[in-house]
């Protein structure tokens, strides 16, 4: 049976993400309508895709009349990082959780929902995930609808400031464990260095932003898994005192 308590816990954890999603999806709603899409389709894109960079890029391609192959491949490349997240989550879900639940839980794997779920110390249950998914989906859809309908009445100074919200949440998620564990801090530093190299060195400019994340993650995690493998209790042993 699904636990109401776990669901509520998920809803509460999802609330900051919901708020952070509103200004981003607001911008998407404006962009979609300005590219000539009807309001209902903009909203449908947000509910069915639930991605930021992926749906921005795909919608721009569709507005430009691109071929389906290009649209599909671009979506694949930008969103492929979710596979790594889904794999990491799969190891935190009880083996008894049914296929039906897994099919529903998979729908809600976004950068932010993943970041919150994976840092839970307890096991990830379907009820918790549904709560954690439903609030951000609501915010993402609401923001899209508001942006599409009002076509941009949010003052630029305010929406610019709100642009930092989701990034600030990521900082709030990774700083406390980095403070406690040297290996975690090292992982973060390696990932940032690789991302910067891929982003700023011109010969790598053909690599999309989604792939930058994949490559940086794999390089950092491969190095750290070799240098500091986890112990039986599932944490990195050395450097805990740092």
């Amino acid at each position: 049976m699904l636990s109401w308590k776990q669901f509520r816990h998920g809803v509460i954890k999802g609330f900051p993400v919901c708020l952070g999603y509103i200004p981003v999806s607001f911008t998407f709603g404006i962009m979609a309508v300005q590219s000539g899409l009807p309001v209902w389709l903009a909203i449908f894109i947000s509910i069915s895709n639930l991605t930021s960079a992926g749906q921005f890029a795909g919608t721009k391609l569709l507005a430009a009349g691109a071929g389906f192959l290009e649209v599909g491949l671009t979506t694949l490349v930008i969103n492929l990082r979710y596979m790594l997240m889904s794999l990491a989550l799969s190891q935190r879900v009880d083996t008894k959780v049914s296929m039906g639940h897994r099919l529903l839980m998979g729908y809600g794997i976004t950068d932010e929902i993943f970041a919150i779920a994976i840092t839970e110390t307890e096991e990830i249950t379907p009820a918790y995930m549904y709560g954690l998914i439903i609030t951000p989906v609501f915010g993402w859809t609401l923001g899209t609808a508001l942006g599409a309908l009002t076509n941009g009445i949010l003052p630029a100074s305010l929406s610019n400031a709100m642009g930092i919200a989701l990034y600030a949440m990521f900082i709030a998620i990774i700083i406390p464990p980095a403070k406690q564990s040297m290996p975690v801090l090292a992982t973060i530093v390696i990932a940032i260095v690789v991302t910067c190299i891929l982003r700023y060195i011109p010969i790598f400019s053909f690599i999309s932003s989604g792939f930058q994340v994949i490559l940086a993650t794999i390089v950092a995690a491969v190095i750290m898994a070799a240098l500091v493998p986890i112990t039986e209790d599932g944490t990195a042993e050395r450097g805990q005192q740092a």
Partner: peptide, 17 residues
């Protein structure tokens, strides 16, 4: 071990720069 480090690497890479 690889999967243990993945979340921190993903989130760091998404955040910076």
């Amino acid at each position: 071990s690889f999967l243990y480090y993945v979340p921190y690497a993903v989130i760091a890479s998404l955040t910076f720069p």
